[in-house]
Amino acid sequence: MGKDPKEENKQEMEQLDEETLFVVSQTFKALSDPTRIRILHVLCEQEMSVNQIAETLDLRQSTVSHQLRFLKNLRLVKYRRAGTTLFYSSDDEHVIDVLQQTINHALHH
């Protein structure tokens, strides 16, 4: 017979190292800010420049740039350069899935 799934999960939980815990906590920190949630939400729909994000969400460019830097450091967004413009898009489908599931939960709860 196979191992008890609860025991396997318990072993996985015990094996979380400090780096993994830090990355997980930083990811949840990223998702705990309403502005970052709004930015990630629009970027999962389409690629946008800082100006487009700022206009779409009615935010200051400096605010958007600051939040994008935070999200880029966590590898939640990526960018490509076209001339002098940077176009941002989501870069972690797992986190976007968690975000979408949480939004759906909130909408239907």
Rank of each mutant, 00 (worst) to 15 (best):
V64S: 01
V64I: 14
D91W: 03
L21M: 12
Q101R: 13
Q15S: 13
T102P: 01
G83H: 05
R81C: 01
L71T: 01
T102D: 03
V24T: 09
Q46C: 07
S49N: 08
L16C: 02
L59K: 14
Q46P: 00
R80C: 04
L76A: 02
K72L: 06
Q15D: 10
T56V: 10
V23R: 10
E12F: 10
T27R: 08
M1E: 14
A54M: 03
T20G: 06
L16Y: 13
E55A: 14
Q52N: 12
E12P: 00
H66E: 12
D91K: 07
I37F: 09
K10D: 06
E12K: 15
V77A: 06
A106T: 07
L86S: 11
S32P: 04
R38C: 07
Q11T: 05
P34K: 14
L21C: 08
T20D: 11
T102M: 09
A82L: 06
Q52K: 14
Q11V: 05
D17P: 01
E19C: 00
C44E: 14
D4Y: 08
T84R: 15
L31F: 02
G2H: 07
D97Q: 11
L99N: 01
E93H: 06
K6I: 10
H105C: 03
R36N: 12
M48C: 05
E55V: 11
Y88E: 00
F28E: 03
L40C: 04
I103C: 05
E93P: 00
T84M: 04
S25Y: 04
S49E: 05
Q52D: 15
V95G: 03
A106K: 08
G2T: 08
T20H: 09
C44D: 13
L16A: 07
R75F: 10
S89L: 09
D97N: 11
